[in-house]
Design a binder for these strands. Structure first.
Lengths: 158, 158
DNA sequence: TGATAATTGTCGATATTCGTATTATAGTTA
DNA sequence: TAACTATAATACGAATATCGACAATTATCA
C-alpha cells in the first residue's frame, strides 16, 4: 500500500484532467465550482483530481514573478566545461549561488548548462569574475547573453 | 490618464507585496484571508494588491504541468545560426512549431537559442530532420541535449 | 461474477470572496 | 499650514466557494 495509482499510470490524463489543467493554466485561482460546471462534474471531483495531480507532481499551482519587473534585467545562459572528477563539487557550489536559476547536465562539449538572472551587466561581470571563475574544476565557460525573448510558452495543454 | 502607477514605479514592491508574493509563490490558491491575517491587513487589501500586480504584469498565478509527467521526456536546447536577412522569417516559422517552447535572440556565434520539448528521441529526430532543417535561412544548428535537471528554481522572492 | 477498492456525488457547516460605502493616508497646492 | 485630491485601506453584509462525512456508483481483478 505504498504507492497508489489512479485509473492508469501517467501520462494518461483523461478528459477531465485536461479540462482542469486547461482551466488552471490560465488562472490558478479559478473556483473549482466554475470548472466543475464547465466539465459537467461535481466540485468534489475537481477538488480530488487537482489534489491528486498535485500529489503526483503532475500539476503545480504557483505564483510567478516576472523577473524583469522584479529588477532582474539580465538573463544569461552559460555553458560550463568541468573536470570529470569535479562535476559533483561544481554542481554543489553552483547550487548555492542565488543567481543560478537552472542547472542542467547536458551532452556536448560542455557538461553543464546553467541559466542565471541578475540585475544588470555589472552584476553579471561580478558573477563571472568573483563567483563562477573561482569554482575549482571549471575549465571553460561559454556565456550566451539573452538579448530578447521572442517566444515563451509554458502552457502544455491546448 | 493612459498609464496608472502605484506608490512608485516597479520594481519597488513594498513589504506587503513581497509578503503576498512569498505566500503565493508556494501556493497560488492560498486564501487571501490567510495572507491578510499573516500580514496584518484586510483581505480586500490583499485582493487589490494581487489584482494590481497581475494587471501590471508583475505576478502571474498559473497552473504548470510537469512536462515529464505529461509524456514529454526529451528536452533539448538548440543554438541556431541564421542568415542575417532571414532572421524574422526563421523566428516566424519557429513560432508556429508546437515543440518549440522558448525562442531567444542571443549574442554569440548563433543568433537564436531555442528550447524544445518532445516525447522521445524519435520525435527529436523528426523535429530536426523534418522541421528545423527545412526552415529556409538556417545555416547551422548546435543541439544540446538535456540529460538531467540538477536544479530548477522559479522562486524570485525569498 | 462477486468482492474490494477507488472515484464520484450529495449536502450542510464553515470559510472565503466580492462589492459598496466609508475612513485613512500621502501628496499637492494655495 | 490648511484645504484639496487621489489613492489605498478598512468595515461589513451578501453571495459563493470550500470542506468533510457519508452514501452511491463505478472500476478492478481474482
Amino acid at each position: 500500500m505504498e504507492e497508489k495509482f489512479r485509473r492508469s499510470l501517467y501520462p494518461e490524463l483523461d478528459d477531465i484532467d485536461y479540462g482542469i489543467v486547461r482551466a488552471l493554466q490560465e488562472n490558478a485561482r479559478l473556483p473549482f465550482t466554475t470548472i466543475a460546471k464547465e466539465l459537467g462534474v461535481t466540485e468534489k471531483t475537481i477538488r480530488m483530481r487537482v489534489q491528486q495531480m498535485q500529489d503526483d507532481g503532475v500539476l503545480s499551482l504557483v505564483g510567478i514573478v516576472n523577473p524583469v519587473k522584479a529588477g532582474l534585467n539580465v538573463e544569461s545562459f552559460i555553458q560550463i566545461a568541468v573536470e570529470a572528477d569535479k562535476l559533483d563539487d561544481v554542481v554543489e557550489v553552483l547550487n548555492g549561488i542565488v543567481e543560478v536559476r537552472l542547472i542542467v547536465l547536458t551532452t556536448g562539449d560542455y557538461q553543464l548548462f546553467i541559466q542565471i538572472l541578475v540585475r544588470n551587466y555589472e552584476e553579471l561581470a561580478q558573477f563571472l569574475m568573483k563567483k563562477l571563475n573561482k569554482v575549482p574544476g571549471v575549465t571553460r565557460v561559454n556565456v550566451i547573453n539573452e538579448l530578447k525573448i521572442l517566444k515563451s510558452k509554458f502552457k502544455f495543454v491546448r
